[in-house]
Write a protein that binds this DNA or RNA. Structure first.
Lengths: 244, 244
DNA sequence: GTGATAATAGCTGTCAGACAACTCAAGCGT
DNA sequence: ACGCTTGAGTTGTCTGACAGCTATTATCAC
């Protein structure tokens, strides 16, 4: 039996995240002491601390030894690249209305690049390609191509709906837990300009991303062209004990 | 007395990081069980687990309940943007030789943008500007502007040497612990093309970054123009309990 | 009064030992 | 050959306590 249920510290972290999202505790505010919080969340201090550490590393919280735990200031950081998955969430967090245009899918033989990234075997190199233009308040802002291994998808199933992550989880039984994104600048060519309704030569941010499930197996490769003018891409960078 | 000594879990994390860097444990390999590791590191299991969780969130380790802790595969991820500070480290981790050209500094009155980012008061809005062309194996790859509040720098001290982070720590007594970077695409104009020895219109990645010390006070604003062709910018993205 | 110094309350960090939950593989029976 | 049970090994969680840090308050010398 394979369960893959998440540890309870995960649920605790999620609950606290909800508090922060809903403003139960305001930026700059101090959280109750750990023992009280643990009681309130019906868990132990150990588990609570695991969750708090997670949120701290995500930049949502800040802890000071001997003083307390505080809610971080910038609400902006929520749209940070190191956290969020999916264009839908990105757009929604800017308080704009996400939508999809020009969605189409087809099957094809994976290219060498994609076969490598998705770790496909020679006898299993068919991928389902989903191409979409994503909109915010009906304005096109992202063009995306998603590649899912054919072998992961049950026969007849097709990626519909906003979120391909939900499709992977609910239909394919694969939950994406982390991804590796490669960022580079780009320019709109003729086709891209038409799709995104901008002029040729407009600045874009290109994201090549590989998403992995709990077993660290790649389940999705996606390439996204983001309109630079529409987003503010934030990355939280942390000291990693460089020494020297 | 203000100490700000880091918790011992920090030192433990650093030690394990060194093991990974030096290949004491290879990618894919399983680490010894936590009780053994804790003994070996002369700490408790609780503290060890804090450190492991940190490394896990950085993508260096992976843990599976009931199975073990494993070293993550891709050595590439080490040059990930969410971790590393400073161009010097970035270049060094690509096994290239970092250098500096065209370094110059001056003082100036901070612009509105910079005054806002560094949270400067009206009577304290002088900044020291450090401009540099950074090279990898003598090839120019980054042009950077660093802005440090004048009030942080002891009289007469000047930012020399490779790392401005070390200058801030050793000379100004401010240790940078995290930064917020804004990424956007850019093009080389005439001046930039000359500095970086590329043609006008070359694709660049522009990083605007604000760095904070332990007290979450901004101590450095920097703007970096990276040659897109010279780097592979990787971001590790994590599921953050989005639900819905 | 006033400024330095010491006590104190409140909090996070760390400790020890135990048990629960999970995964995988070996052994067993059918 | 197949499914089930058992067990060893590992991470996850629990309890209760104490150590260490920080900011505030109280104390004392002057």
């Amino acid at each position: 039996m394979v369960t893959h249920s998440r540890p309870s510290s995960y649920a605790v972290a999620m609950e606290v995240r909800r508090w922060l999202r809903e403003g139960t505790y305001q930026p700059g505010e101090q959280l109750p002491p750990e023992p009280a919080l643990a009681t309130q969340l019906n868990t132990s201090r150990v588990t609570l601390r695991e969750a708090l550490r997670e949120l701290q590393q995500e930049g949502l919280l800040q802890r000071r030894h001997g003083v307390g735990t505080f809610v971080s200031e910038p609400g902006r950081m929520k749209e940070s690249l190191h956290l969020n998955f999916g264009v839908t969430h990105l757009i929604r967090q800017m308080n704009r209305d996400p939508g999809t245009k020009e969605a189409s899918y087809h099957e094809e033989k994976a290219s060498d690049l994609i076969r490598e990234h998705l770790e496909l075997e020679d006898d299993d190199d068919t991928v389902i390609v989903l191409e979409r233009v994503r909109t915010a308040d009906n304005q096109p802002v992202v063009y995306s191509q998603d590649y899912v291994p054919r072998s992961l998808v049950p026969n007849g199933a097709l990626p519909v709906g906003e979120s391909i992550y939900r499709f992977l989880r609910d239909v394919c039984g694969r939950t994406v837990v982390f991804g590796e994104a490669h960022v580079k600048p780009g320019l709109a060519d003729k086709r891209m300009a038409k799709l995104l309704d901008v002029r040729v030569g407009e600045l874009l941010l290109v994201l090549d991303q590989i998403d992995f499930d709990e077993r660290s197996q790649p389940v999705l490769f996606s390439r996204e062209w983001h309109l630079a003018s529409a987003f503010d891409f934030v990355i939280l960078r942390r000291d990693a004990g460089l020494e020297s």
